[in-house]
Structure formats: C-alpha cells, structure tokens
Design a protein around this nucleic acid. Structure first.
Lengths: 181, 181
DNA sequence: GAGACACTGTACCGATCGGTACAGAGAGTC
DNA sequence: GACTCTCTGTACCGATCGGTACAGTGTCTC
C-alpha cells in the first residue's frame, strides 16, 4: 500500500507530461523504475486503472485540502484564501498542468467522464457553499464559482501556451479580489 | 491547392478530437477518405507538416477575422463585440475545442511552441490595441486582454469537462461586460 | 498515340504499442 | 530446508504506429 502511495504521484507526472494516450508503458516503466511485471502486479487493469487511481488520488487531495474547508470552515473568506493558496502551491505557481483538464480535452475524456465532471462539480459546489456563507446571493455565488474554476483552468492553459508562469500568478491574484468583492 | 483547402479543416477536426499524438494516420486516412499515398503526396513532411499547416490555417483565420479588425477598426468597441461573436461562432458556442490549447497542454507543444505562443501573443496584442483605443490605460488594457484570453480557454476546458456548452456562452457574456466596463 | 504529370491504393518496413506468460527472487513462516 | 506469497525482469504476443516504395490510374499536352 505504501508502495502504491509512492507510485501514484510518479504516474501522475507521466500522464501530465504526455497525456493519457501519450503515456506509453515504456515511459511509465522508466519514470517509476518498475518493469511491466511489477506495474501489472499493482495495476492488473493496466493503463486505464493507473489513470483512474491517479485521478482518484488527485480528487481525494482536493477533497481534503480544498473542498472540505470550503464547505466546513467557520470563516468562509479564510477558506477561500486557503483555496487560492493551495491551488497556487498544487500547480507550482503555473508550472504544473492540471491533469483533469488535460484528460478533459483529450479523447480519454469519454472513459473518465464521470471522474472529470465530478471533480469540477464538487469543487464548484464547495465554493458556492463558501461564497454563500460570506453573504452572497445564490446566483452570484454560482456565477463567481464558475468564474473561479474557468479562470484557473484558462490560466494554466495560457501559462503553458505562452511559457510564462506569471500569467497564472496574476490570474489568481485578480481572482481573489473578484471572489470576495 | 483547392484540394488542400478542403483537407485542412478535416485534419483539424481529427487533431481536435484526438490530440496530436492520438491522431493516427489511420484515423486521418479515414476522416479524409484518402490513402497514405495521397496524404504523403500532399504532406511529404507527414503528420508534423499536417499539424503545422492546420495551425497556420487557424492562425490565418483568426488574423483575418479577429486580429486585424481589433487592430484596424475605426470603432474598437465594435471590433471587440465582433471578436466575441466570431469566437462564439468559431468554437460552436462551446461545443468545439481550441486546437491551439489542446496542443499547448500536450507533449507536442515542444514542436509547435512558436506557433502556439505567436497565436496567443498576436491575439493579445491586437486586443490591447483595441482596448487602448477605447481610452483604457496601457496597464488596464494589458490586464483585461490577458483576462479575455484565459477566460476563453478556461471556458472551453470547463465546458468540455462538464459536458455543458452553456458555460462557454455565459463566460463570453460576462467577458463582454468586463472588457468594456 | 506517346509522354509527362498529379494523384492514389496497396504492400511493406522496422519500431513501438498495450498486454500476457512465466520463471524466478526475496522474505517470512513453520 | 520446504512452502507460501509478494514482487520483479524478460521474453513474447498480435496489433498498430509513422513512414516508404512503387506500380498503377486518370488527365492533360503535344
């Protein structure tokens, strides 16, 4: 189990760098320093199981570090600030790409549609909850939470496209002001 | 030449749907109803040349329909409104994905880095030009143009991730109000 | 009709794909 | 030492990958 815990982040980076289709078993084997025998011992379901477990781990990380505080923190403004800080840290200030977004844009979305949709749906719902507790109307909370998610995704795309991570940092700063206006 | 003009959009849809790595010659051959012989007759450089020419055609379309009006229109507000209308139409109200963004997120970005960066750089510069002519400060124009590009990209990602094209339409409407505020 | 030319289908190339089979290696138990 | 069980490397599978070779095919020119 602890082996798997060390494996999943490595798999995640391979999928991030090459996408689902582009992450060949040879690349995965190289990144993990594990032969196919070991790989298929841990993941009998092959590549699809690897990606599914990586997505589940990412989801669990966000659930614990981002979504739950947004839903439960007594101080919603603090939870929102913590979300932005956590997001900045998770995406390495714009130098790391969102695997869920990468999969959403690719052909693999069909396979992982539920995981992809659920991730963003729960994020948005949690953010709506926090925004409502700051006193915003349901409509305003919903609109701003949608704005927040697409801003983060768009900033990651643009930062990578222009090879300028500062775009992401600026977008997060603007977003903070917009969310709590 | 006219054959090639009919070919490039078909190639574009294959790359959009499967990404650069995922677009196999078999898929391309099927989508274009052309055998490998014909494909390599038109594109001796293979898949890479196909993608490069598709990107160039996309760039030319935006240059003519979006960027040039933003730079040259006597009425900058009208050009910005036309940009949003053109973008909505080009991306089929959120049902079509941005090929430049798809490539930017994938491993193929390394090959097409200049084309990808140039596309967004010229878009932003053109939008800055229009915003400045509406009387906005250089700093404000630059910030809002960056916001515009990442909003469009993020809305496309989120719309596809959640399988809800309305996200894109809403984002464009909000963006319009924000740009001309 | 002869020749040139742009285009096309098919067979084929070596490499790599995801996945399987299997014989161990190593550690723990009795 | 014998057995079990988890883990590992390697050889191998058929399929597909991007790309090449080449013999046509039709059309147009002279």
């Amino acid at each position: 189990m602890t082996d798997r815990a060390r494996l999943l982040p490595q798999l995640g980076e391979v999928f991030r760098a090459h996408g689902y289709e582009g992450a060949s078993l040879a690349l995965i084997s190289q990144a993990t320093a594990l032969g196919k025998g070991s790989l298929y011992h841990f993941f009998p379901g092959g590549k699809q199981q690897m990606a599914a477990e990586v997505l589940a781990e990412i989801d669990a990380w966000f659930e614990h570090n981002i979504f739950a505080p947004l839903r439960d923190d007594d101080d919603p403004a603090r939870a929102i600030a913590a979300m932005l800080k956590g997001v900045d840290s998770y995406f390495r200030s714009g130098n790391r790409v969102c695997l869920v977004g990468v999969i959403a844009l690719g052909h693999a979305r069909d396979i992982f549609a539920d995981a992809v949709n659920g991730y963003f749906a729960r994020w948005q719902d949690a953010l709506v909850s926090a925004l409502r507790r700051t006193g915003q109307s349901p409509a305003m909370a919903r609109k701003r939470s949608e704005d927040a998610l697409l801003t983060i995704q768009g900033a990651l795309v643009l930062a990578r496209a222009r090879d300028d991570a500062a775009i992401f940092t600026r977008a997060l700063a603007d977003l903070k002001a917009r969310l709590l206006a």
